[in-house]
Simulated scan of single mutants.
Amino acid sequence: MSASSSPSVPPLRAIIVDDEPPARALVDEFLSAYDAIDVVGSAGSVSDAVDCIDAEAPDLVFLDVQMPDGDGFDVLEQIDTLPDIIFSTAYDEYAIQAFETGAVDYLLKPYKRSRFDTAVGRVLARHDGRPDPNDANPDREPAPSRTGESSDYADRIADLLQAAKAPGDAPERLYVRHGGKIIPVELDDVLWIKADGDYSELHTQENTFLSSKGIGELAERLDERRFARVHRSHIISLGAVDHLRSDDSGGYVARLVDGTRLRVSRSYAPEIRDRIV
């Protein structure tokens, strides 16, 4: 099962995160068959995992979901750079469907060697010049490089983190891609939200963040006691409104505490007036 690495392509650097030493040893043993992957560290807790990942900046992390001092999502929230992630979990309560769309792959414990090899093959196929060792047709064109899809991958990881941190409830924070990492944006800090195609801009006093969620989806998920849709392109924080002024056409202009002025369209005006005045 060995996958040789090309002299021109260095091996992928991997870190194994699991609170159980036998589980870490098993992953390390399975990876020893892959010349294209070097294990550069391991950790058994959230805090050690964050320190190890930030220090080594690996290409790949095998990430346990359940740990004594938190979970794998806490690791994702705190690390400085986002590597490829293969989750491992003994429970399916963490929404396997979300894992399938959010991470490179997941391993449901106990897993067989063949399932492990499939997961690793998917990682290798994401990197230029690295064949999937499980591919029955090794002469096919390689899978697209991670480089070309890094933004989409980070957005999917952010979505997965959001689902894990606020399952079914109105969230207190939104997870967004920011540079090479995923960061939480506290909704208490968000003054207004602007539609940006299929994405949304989150505006705070100091920064603007891009969420992979569309403004319609955000409007449905946010706490209606704190946020209101005022236009097809805008959501405002009710606590950020300084005052409303009539626009003489049945709508309003809302002035926010940071000086931003946003139009409240006529169709949203009655509800906004009743909620603010």
Score class of each variant (00 low, 15 high):
122 R>H: 10
179 G>M: 14
212 S>K: 11
221 R>L: 10
246 S>D: 07
115 R>Y: 10
103 A>L: 10
2 S>V: 04
79 I>W: 00
157 I>E: 03
112 K>L: 09
111 Y>L: 12
24 R>F: 00
10 P>E: 12
162 Q>R: 10
89 T>Q: 12
17 V>W: 01
16 I>H: 03
50 V>L: 06
227 F>D: 01
13 R>D: 15
197 G>E: 02
215 I>A: 06
1 M>D: 14
204 T>N: 06
207 N>K: 13
122 R>D: 07
181 K>G: 11
142 P>G: 09
42 S>D: 11
66 Q>F: 04
238 L>Y: 08
15 I>F: 14
63 L>H: 03
57 A>N: 09
113 R>D: 13
38 D>A: 07
54 D>C: 11
107 L>M: 15
130 R>M: 06
11 P>L: 04
57 A>D: 08
59 D>N: 09
159 D>K: 07
128 D>G: 07
93 E>N: 11
17 V>T: 06
84 D>Y: 12
112 K>I: 07
126 R>A: 14
32 S>Q: 04
116 F>S: 01
218 L>N: 09
25 A>M: 13
62 F>A: 03
15 I>C: 09
166 A>T: 07
1 M>Q: 15
226 R>L: 03
180 G>P: 10
141 E>G: 14
194 K>V: 07
27 V>R: 00
1 M>S: 15
14 A>F: 05
38 D>V: 10
92 D>T: 08
62 F>H: 08
30 F>K: 09
76 L>A: 05
181 K>N: 14
24 R>C: 01
80 D>Y: 12
250 G>K: 10
117 D>V: 15
190 V>E: 01
53 I>P: 04
109 K>D: 07
235 I>S: 02
196 D>F: 01
257 V>N: 11
130 R>I: 06
251 G>K: 01
41 G>A: 08
260 T>H: 11
17 V>D: 04
35 D>G: 02
265 S>T: 11
168 G>A: 12
177 R>T: 00
148 G>P: 02
6 S>M: 03
24 R>D: 03
256 L>T: 05
30 F>Q: 04
94 Y>W: 14
25 A>Y: 13
222 L>M: 06
224 E>T: 00
231 H>K: 08
67 M>V: 14
147 T>C: 02
119 A>W: 01
4 S>C: 07
105 D>V: 11
70 G>D: 05
214 G>D: 02
131 P>D: 13
248 D>W: 13
239 G>Y: 15
180 G>W: 10
136 A>M: 13
82 L>G: 09
54 D>F: 10
72 G>Q: 00
68 P>Y: 09
194 K>A: 13
65 V>L: 05
128 D>V: 09
173 R>H: 15
35 D>P: 01
224 E>F: 00
172 E>C: 07
18 D>F: 01
54 D>A: 10
196 D>T: 02
58 P>R: 03
209 F>K: 05
